[in-house]
Design a binder for these strands. Structure first.
Lengths: 148, 148
DNA sequence: TTAAAATAGGATAAAAAAGGTCTTAAATGT
DNA sequence: ACATTTAAGACCTTTTTTATCCTATTTTAA
């Protein structure tokens, strides 16, 4: 099934939340979990994983929490998804060249290869800066509507 | 996880196999299963489902088996995938408009909407005729290489 | 030194995926 | 009529993945 896991979904929302913070400002799991409406204990584990992979830095103790290690414009949707789910692989035959013994005769193989490329390229083009900005614009529009 | 299920994979291979047959020529599960290297019992079940959904017609008894109800050029990869897995839905928020209460403020939503459109459009463009032809060309090239 | 916060990891429960088995029903040739 | 062939249908098992929760431990600022 072609469906994003909750793990990746939550991680994306978490990173997006951090994208709004000033550089260096830490943010605790509870704040993120509450704001994004996700289970705190689960999110904590996901952020541990993001920390090990270098996307966020963690600080323990009072006033601790997480910060991004890169600027939002340098983090792509693809990276966060692959951090949580492993490399995107639309079909087993793409695990590595030669995994499927029929690679060179199978007419479906090149189709999956191309689909993979397009999908990944698109996701690679989506940065958290873009998304954060889009969010601000949307929030403004909503405000306008309400006051109008 | 963004991965094609075995069910869909096997169904695709099965339909592809039928695409090489002359119109009206039936082909049994065992032949398909053997040729494509997939578990016969499982494939049988998948073909039952394809029959119910109108992609193939079945004939019981001696010389029975399956035929395609449409010509390969009129069957797309997308159709077969969706027949086996249900509608492609890259993220829960795309289940239907309004499913996610944050649709109109969430900056990730439009990204998934676009990714979905691109993915589906590509798969919709892939017909079994194309794939069958590609297969023949590949087989020829292999032959040339061997005799050269 | 104590309270706040992340870390590490296991436990688990539910769902989906992958596959098998066995019986019934229909078509066909003899 | 009957045996044979082949799909249909119902049910079941195993494995894997997903999504959680929970508890003990470490770190650190006040």
């Amino acid at each position: 099934m072609f469906r994003l896991s909750k793990a990746a979904e939550y991680a994306i929302r978490g990173v997006l939340h951090l994208s709004f913070k000033a550089e260096g400002e830490t943010c605790g799991i509870d704040e993120i979990a509450k704001a994004q409406g996700v289970p705190p204990a689960y999110l904590a584990k996901l952020f541990q994983s993001l920390a090990r992979k270098g996307f966020v830095r963690s600080f323990r103790g009072v006033e601790g929490g997480f910060i991004l290690t890169k600027r939002p414009k340098d983090i792509t949707l693809l990276e966060i998804i692959e951090a949580m789910e492993g490399r995107i692989c639309l079909n087993d035959c793409l695990i590595y060249a030669g995994y499927c013994p029929k690679d060179d005769v199978c007419p479906v193989h090149p189709v999956w290869k191309e689909a993979h490329k397009r999908f990944v390229d698109y996701l690679k083009g989506c940065t958290f800066e873009e998304m954060a900005n889009a969010s601000k614009v949307k929030a403004m529009r909503t405000k306008e509507k309400i006051s109008a």
